[in-house]
Amino acid sequence: MYEDALARVDLFSALDKKELQALAKSFQERSYTAGSTIIAQGDSGVGLYIVTAGNVRITRSKDADHGDEDLGVQGPGNVLGEMSLLDDLPRSATVTAVDDVTALLVPVWEFRNFLRNHPDVALKLLAVLSRRLRKAENLRPE
């Protein structure tokens, strides 16, 4: 049901139709009203979100004296919280619904179970994450 939305996400772009269909079964649709917090900085990650409708604002608190740093607005097709699928570290930013938002959520335990049953997908995802890391390293100032 959600495989078309997953196919448009960079993280899952290397998956074939059968893999996308299997992964899509783990996703749940969630709705958020404008102004509500979807992800709170410092909380444990419950999973990955794919925005399917609406816009979200991403902010990060540096310290109490300087307030929040605005990291931008994301809309449909954007992925939020993908690192929580791989590590158990706290969320690094807060995500707030700018307007009414619909998102697909895959809980971390569902995703990890999916990878245990589809180890080839894990290798494909590692390749995507490796490309992202290389790109980020190339953008980093010396």
Score class of each variant (00 low, 15 high):
V9G: 12
D99F: 12
A5H: 06
L133S: 09
E29T: 13
V128C: 09
F111N: 03
T94P: 03
L126K: 04
V51Y: 14
P119A: 01
L15T: 02
A64Y: 05
R132F: 04
I39N: 13
R140C: 08
P141A: 07
D68A: 11
A93Q: 04
A93L: 03
Q74I: 09
A127I: 11
A53C: 06
L15H: 02
T102K: 15
T102V: 08
L126A: 13
E137W: 05
V121N: 03
V9Y: 08
L20K: 06
S130Q: 11
L129D: 04
R134M: 08
R91N: 10
G42E: 06
L123G: 08
Q28H: 06
A7L: 02
L115V: 03
N117F: 02
V101K: 05
V98C: 11
A103S: 14
L71A: 00
F111T: 08
A34Y: 11
P141R: 10
A7H: 04
D70L: 09
R116G: 02
D4E: 15
A40V: 05
D4A: 13
V121R: 01
T33V: 07
V121L: 01
L129E: 05
D68H: 12
V101Q: 10
G81M: 06
E82M: 06
V128I: 13
S26P: 02
L86M: 12
D70K: 03
Y32E: 09
T96Q: 14
T52N: 12
T102P: 00
E82C: 05
V108Q: 13
L48K: 02
V108H: 06
I58A: 08
P76G: 15
D70Y: 10
I50S: 07
T52D: 10
N138C: 06
D87V: 11
V95N: 05
P119S: 01
G42F: 10
P90M: 09
N117V: 01
P76C: 05
R57L: 08
N55T: 04
R60C: 05
P107W: 01
M1T: 08
D70P: 01
E110D: 11
A40Y: 09
T59P: 03
F111G: 04
V51M: 11
M83L: 14
S26M: 08
T52R: 13
A53D: 14
L129P: 00
I58V: 15
S44N: 10
L11W: 01
L125V: 03
A103D: 12
Q21E: 15
L139Q: 05
L129C: 04
A24Q: 00
L15F: 02
N117Q: 10
D68M: 07
R131V: 13
V46F: 07
D120M: 11
D65G: 08
E69P: 00
F12P: 15
L104G: 04
G81K: 04
K17H: 12
L115N: 08
R112Y: 00
A53S: 14
Y49Q: 09
D4T: 14
I50D: 09
V46Y: 10
V79H: 07
R57E: 15
Y2F: 15
M1D: 15
V121E: 01
E29V: 14
D16L: 02
P119K: 00
N78G: 06
D99C: 14
Q21L: 13
I38W: 03
L71D: 00
F12Q: 07
L15Q: 02
Q28L: 06
D10S: 14
V9R: 04
P141I: 05
P76S: 15
D68P: 03
S13Y: 00
E110M: 05
S44W: 13
E29N: 10
